Computed example of a mutant assay.
Amino acid sequence: MPADRVSTARPVDRELRRLLRQGTFAQVLDHCLNVRGLSLKRLQDDLEARGAHMSRAALSYWRNGQCRPERDESLRAVRALEELFGLPESALVSLLGPPRPRGRGAEPGSVDRKRMWPGHDPLVASLAVSADEGLRHLSVHEDVRVGADRRLAEVSTRMVVEAARDHVDRCLVYQWVEESELPELAASRFCRPGRTRRDETAGATVCELVLDQRLMAGERTVVEFTWKFAGGPELTHYHRRFTRPVRELVLQVEFTGPAPANCVPYRQRTPADPARRGHPLWIGLTGAAHLVVEDVRPGIAGLSWEWD
């Protein structure tokens, strides 16, 4: 057998046999690559020699569990992987499960990210990351500070997140402003800023936050970050957008100057849908209004107020 080819011997190590019985496609692929000391470039070359053409980016996504093979060409590559690694026929294919539904019905109860953040889609695409970042948001606590000039000054966010798949090491956060300068990420805890993309015309910002630790499926962590704002019009509302259900939202708006005349919670399905308003909230002596919602459905939850 040539030295530059991958061995096709039957699986013999105990961990591989266990993963083939109980593991995921991504875990088996990662294990085989690690045991054999193969780079993605080497793997790509071996697949090419067998007529399976896959990019290194796609192979990396498969290995990390960010996406899985579903197209006909991808499934041909999976069968080539079985041959390369000396695995029984259909050993990897059987780990893929049924194809995931696509389109509007892809995830019941969710809202398409493009509908919720229409101006951000080109920025996300430029980062060349999976649209599904692999994180569930369990709770979101957001502290919004409005200056004495009635303008947005600062937003601090604390999120508890859970990995929906293995090898999750980052998340994307979004900001949108209207008729004001784009915000700056001023601080972060339990993570560090990665790449940032901006579109001043659309008022859109996307920032990649790299987690302190790589999460396996079911593991949880906390992410904290603060945005600083400069300039902008008089603020009369603030909201949080959710594409998936969240167990708890705590939205706190602090007015550092005189408090507005009233403050009302509202909900929307998407930015294009009409708002449904609730009962007025009390603004305490500290000049803060609080919105606490459990089992938040996908959509928009926010507060609006009148100054005079």
Rank of each mutant, 00 (worst) to 15 (best):
L19C: 11
R21P: 02
Q22E: 09
Q22C: 15
G23W: 02
G23L: 11
F25A: 01
A26Q: 02
V28D: 06
D30Q: 03
D30N: 08
H31I: 03
L33K: 08
N34F: 05
N34I: 06
N34V: 12
V35D: 06
V35H: 08
R36E: 04
R36W: 01
L38M: 12
S39V: 03
S39K: 14
L40C: 01
K41N: 08
R42H: 15
L43T: 00
D45H: 14
D45W: 02
D46F: 04
E48S: 04
E48R: 15
A49S: 10
A49F: 10
R50C: 10
G51T: 13
A52Q: 12
A52I: 01
H53K: 07
H53T: 12
S55V: 09
S55I: 05
R56V: 07
A58F: 13
A58D: 07
L59N: 02
L59G: 00
Y61G: 01
Y61Q: 04
W62T: 04
W62P: 14
G65V: 09
C67E: 06
C67G: 08
C67A: 00
R68K: 13
R68E: 01
P69E: 00
P69H: 03
R71H: 11
D72Q: 13
R76N: 15
A77I: 03
A77M: 00
V78Y: 11
R79G: 01
A80M: 07
L81G: 00
E82L: 08
L84R: 00
L84I: 00
L84Y: 02
L84D: 04
L84C: 03
G86M: 10
G86P: 01
P88S: 15
E89W: 02
E89I: 13
E89H: 14
S90R: 07
S90Q: 07
A91G: 04
A91L: 02
L92C: 14
S94F: 10
S94M: 09
L96Q: 03
L96D: 03
G97C: 03
R100A: 12
P101F: 06
R102S: 02
G103M: 01
R104V: 13
R104P: 13
G105R: 02
A106Q: 05
A106T: 07
A106V: 04
P108K: 08
P108Q: 12
K114H: 11
R115F: 10
M116Q: 10
P118G: 14
G119N: 04
D121W: 05
P122G: 01
L123N: 12
L123A: 12
L123M: 08
A125E: 04
A125D: 03
S126F: 15
L127I: 11
L127F: 02
L127G: 15
A128I: 05
S130N: 03
S130Y: 06
S130D: 05
D132F: 03
E133G: 15
G134Y: 12
G134T: 03
G134L: 05
L135T: 06
L135Y: 12
L135D: 09
H137R: 10
L138E: 00
L138V: 09
S139C: 08
S139Q: 13
S139W: 08
S139N: 01
V140Q: 11
V140D: 10
V144N: 05
V144Q: 10
R145H: 12
V146Q: 14
